[in-house]
Nucleic acid binder design. Structure first.
Lengths: 105, 105
DNA sequence: TCGGAATTTCGATGGATCTCGAACCGACCG
DNA sequence: CGGTCGGTTCGAGATCCATCGAAATTCCGA
């Protein structure tokens, strides 16, 4: 299986990143990746089908939020924290630390 | 004309804010408002029709990014910087200071 | 009170987006 | 070589979104 395309740092676009993170499912994925560990697609149990999950990973990858690495028959996903910090300083940090549920305010 | 609904601080949702800012036209509007001044709708000359501009203002307002105040037959728009900073610390700053055009990197 | 100015609302259109099941594919294991 | 595992790709349906012109709304000024 070919290595998926992970766009280079310089090509990351703010609009695409914001759009990628504006979906609750994708935001949840980003949060879980925030520990720095790599996750295989199958480990994300958020009530969506394989096809839908794959779609969300593609959006995240094409926006440059996530990097996909192939290992055997698995895809390992990781947050592109360094690239995001370089391109959009403070953005990822702000998104990850935001209180999610306004009711808790 | 009735005062438009500006949602209270506690109701602002991260997904809605990110979505609102993920459109290039709306991001441009937010950037222009970042000076702190109020702008009437008509002052935004970004190549869109009145109807479309009005639509974008509604999205920004409902997400809580912008506050609309009626004065005579004008609508004055301003950034809700304090509320955004309180709900999502660092987010607005990061979005506004991000380099926009990757080619310049 | 009439007309114009600033903006919203309506209705339509074309294009995204989210979601899914089914089919597919490469990699690993007997 | 056949099967299974992890994941993608392929339609397809439903919904949403950006955009516009035209009509409506509200207010100011002459």
């Amino acid at each position: 299986m070919r290595e998926p395309h992970n766009p280079p740092r310089a090509e990351l676009e703010l609009s695409a990143v914001l759009h990628a993170l504006s979906d609750p499912a994708r935001l949840e994925i980003a949060r879980r990746l925030a520990t720095g560990q790599e996750w295989s697609c199958g480990r994300f149990e958020i009530g969506l089908s394989k096809a839908t999950l794959s779609h969300h990973f593609r959006v995240l990858r094409e926006a440059g939020v996530v990097k996909t690495r192939v290992e055997g028959r698995k895809r390992l996903q990781s947050l592109r924290r360094d690239d995001l910090d370089a391109r959009f300083p403070g953005l990822l940090e702000a998104v990850l630390t935001a209180w999610d549920h306004p009711r808790a305010a």
